[in-house]
Amino acid sequence: MFDFLKGPILSIQTFFLLSGRAMVNIFRSPHYADDISLQMDIIGVGSLPLILLTGLFTGAVITLQMSRALNTYGASGQVGNIVAITLVRELGPVLTALLVAGRNASGIASEIGSMKVTEQIDAMRALGTDPVQKLVTPRLLAMATMLPVLTIISDFMGLVGGYVVGSVLLNLTTPTQFWSSAYQALEYRDIAQGLIKPFVFALVIALVGCHAGMNTTGGTQGVGRATTQAVVVSSVWVIVLTFFISKFFVDF
């Protein structure tokens, strides 16, 4: 009767098993430092141009959209405040995570998925290597390190974008007022929220990507399916989780 639930439940079970093993492996030898630094380069440095550009224009567009509303209430001097809070609390972490999910969850799923269908994962096990230790844990560590860093960079670029539009193009506020209101608007809980979110998103993106890759079946078509699944599932989880983390910070 409930046979249709078997697949999703099995998938959730394998996801948590994989997550558990990947996390336990952080504290076990061998550690593949080369793989970790390679993945940090791919995820961090590779995503940097994308993050710089989107961060800059996100801040710029928020300022642009807010300018009319703020002018209506004669509060145009608060533009730095609004850009800082919006970016640091919500848009910076979420947009960065969505971009990284699109770029790297798909990359992780397709790379590991291709290895799965060409029997490289089996070969790895046959040759004495735990594929979770070699493939999943380095990607998890690299993502958990680089996504918060990318988010900080994105937040800063957003503020720069907001400053350029608000102070230079629209003359809503003076440069000093912009930066000072942005600085004063942020509390420690905002910073905490802005850093906890990308950390949680990083775990989800890396593990969903790896899980999709490790469970790839059906040749090259299966790799395509796994890639799509990784992007869709990780993006949805980013949106869902940001609500719950925000709710937590609002309530406490």
């Binding site: 029997e119 490289q120 089996d122 070969a123 004495g128």
Partner: peptide
């Protein structure tokens, strides 16, 4: 044991030297 997989199972991101040396390096 040694195994030859149907698809070869070679690691496509590694050189032939690294592929063949893989079990020697990783099988402690």
């Amino acid at each position: 044991m040694g195994i030859l997989f149907q698809e070869g199972g070679l690691f496509d991101s590694m050189t032939i030297e690294e592929n063949v040396g893989y079990p020697l390096v990783n099988m402690k």
